[in-house]
């Protein structure tokens, strides 16, 4: 196999590639955050000003003492109630699960297949064409 000579990439081309990469990186990592699609599916109960420690499930002296030591003297505190009552929703959305499986498996399939094509060229140039 003839040795492959890559084209020269000028400064402008390199800058464009850097900008494309930046857009892709920031887009992929920040877009879900900006669109409020990222993060834990976690919700807290509405604030109850009359809630007692027992209402919040803090039913042992050790739990109450720990919260007191952390600076929460009474259960009548919105920030505290947000922390204590927050729960994940683990109801499985099977369509979304299927999408996830297809995306992850499809991604690895794509990468291994394209890598295989490129790898053949690497080996052919390194070791010569198979006789």
């Amino acid at each position: 196999m003839a040795k492959y000579k890559p084209p020269h990439q000028g400064k402008l081309g390199q800058i464009i590639d850097v900008v494309v990469l930046l857009i892709l990186i920031i887009g992929a990592l920040r877009l879900p955050l900006w669109l409020d699609l990222a993060g834990g599916a976690k919700t807290s109960a509405a604030f109850n000003p009359a809630a007692t420690w027992a209402d919040l499930g803090q039913n042992t002296p050790e739990k109450i003492a720990a919260y007191n030591a952390l600076g929460f003297d009474t259960p009548n505190n919105e920030a505290l109630q947000n922390i204590i009552t927050a729960r994940y929703d683990y109801t499985i959305n099977y369509l979304q699960l299927l999408v996830m499986i297809v995306v992850v498996v499809g991604y690895f399939f794509l990468v291994i297949r394209f890598s295989g094509e490129e790898y053949k060229e690497v080996i052919a140039e390194k070791f010569g064409d198979r006789k």
């Binding site: 887009g27 699609l37 990222a38 994940y88 683990y90 699960l97 394209f114």
Partner: peptide
């Protein structure tokens, strides 16, 4: 990860798919 953070997972893998196509 899917339990609670599914969107992030799909967005992240989606990024790697796009950037892989860009590379290839």
């Amino acid at each position: 990860v899917f339990l609670g953070y599914g969107t992030q997972l799909i967005a992240m893998v989606g990024f790697y798919v796009v950037v892989s196509l860009w590379f290839h």
